[in-house]
Simulated assay, not measured.
Amino acid sequence: MGFSDQRFNVNLSILYTELPLLERPAAAAAAGFTAVELWWPWVDAPTPAQSELDALKSALEDAGVQLVGLNFYAGQLPGPDRGALSIPGEESEKFRANIDIAADFAASVGCKALNALYGNRVEGVDPAEQDKLALENLQIAARAADRVGAILLIEALNKPESPLCPIVSAPKAIEIVDKVNEATGLGNAKFLMDLYHLSMNGEDLSEVIEKYTAKTGHVQIADNPGRGAPGTGDLPLADLLDQLKKAGYDGWVGLEYKAGDRSSTESFGWLPAEARAAR
């Protein structure tokens, strides 16, 4: 099987960043892709003007690409932040203000997956207080996602690049997924399995796939080392995606890697053109 039997989408917050936001969907379409994902595009605006939301919706529709994943507001990405929902005060308030806006936008474009990044530990704040706040916010987010027929994604990051984030292993992310589902009774919280982050943590990726595919709602890939395109590092990504497929995963695989010295379109040379359009 390998790469030719997957449903890939392009992350427009890490690829095509050489272009303005509203030009990126068309660029992905021109490269042969029919699906994309985004971090929250307005890092300084959890509640953007309706005109900005409408413009992004039009850009997606005009390009003929489907938005399949969207982050809730998560602070400065890329940058020092790793989410907002566990940060007491202004950042948590921004996350809450964003929840229904993000969910309603997702509904308007048919996006069925919303990713909620946990956030960093804050010096001087009891971790238990942050975790209590996080669970409260994740319950609100899960209910908003459910309202629009979407899943809530919980992602494990990696400790070397995110040393202040407490969600830096697959088991820890699964623990949060289970807590949210138990608290809401909805069952729509799922694991976002980012193979790059997990590999940076030194986790056994085959074991992660074996244990947690059933609770996985989305997958993202980049090679390691370097966070580049498949083939630029040492990860057996084609084999890992085959294992995921055999374990029952038939969802999206987000290309969340850095193009490096090449253009974003040139970075897709590893993937045949006929395998880019979702089937």
Rank of each mutant, 00 (worst) to 15 (best):
N137V: 03
D131S: 13
G149K: 03
L138E: 04
N115A: 14
N137E: 00
V122Q: 10
Q139T: 13
R147M: 07
Y118R: 12
N120C: 12
A116C: 09
A128C: 09
A145F: 01
R143W: 05
A141M: 00
Y118I: 14
V125E: 06
K132M: 11
E136P: 08
A150M: 02
Q139C: 14
I140D: 15
L117Q: 11
N115D: 13
R121W: 15
E136Y: 08
N115W: 12
L138S: 03
E123R: 14
P127T: 07
Q139W: 11
D126P: 07
P127C: 09
N120F: 12
K132R: 13
R143H: 07
R121A: 15
A128V: 10
Y118T: 13
A116K: 07
V148W: 01
L117A: 12
D126F: 07
V148Y: 01
N137H: 00
G149D: 02
A145D: 03
R143D: 08
I140S: 15
L117F: 10
Q130A: 05
V125K: 07
I140M: 15
Y118A: 11
A150H: 01
R143S: 06
A134N: 04
G149F: 00
D131F: 12
A128L: 11
K132Q: 11
A141G: 00
A144F: 01
G124K: 05
E136R: 09
L138G: 04
Y118G: 11
L135P: 02
I151M: 15
N115F: 13
L117R: 11
R147D: 09
R143P: 06
L135G: 04
E123F: 14
R147L: 08
L135A: 03
A150G: 00
N137C: 00
A142K: 03
D126W: 07
D131G: 10
D126A: 09
Q139S: 13
G149A: 00
A128R: 11
L133W: 04
A128D: 13
P127G: 08
V125H: 07
Q139E: 13
V122I: 12
G149V: 03
E123C: 13
R121K: 15
G149E: 03
V122C: 10
Q130Y: 06
L117I: 11
I140A: 15
V125N: 05
P127K: 08
L133H: 02
E123V: 14
E136F: 09
E123G: 14
D126C: 07
R147V: 07
N137F: 01
E129T: 12
L135T: 04
E136N: 10
E129A: 12
P127S: 08
N137P: 02
D146I: 10
L135M: 05
A145E: 01
A134P: 04
L138C: 04
A134I: 04
L133R: 03
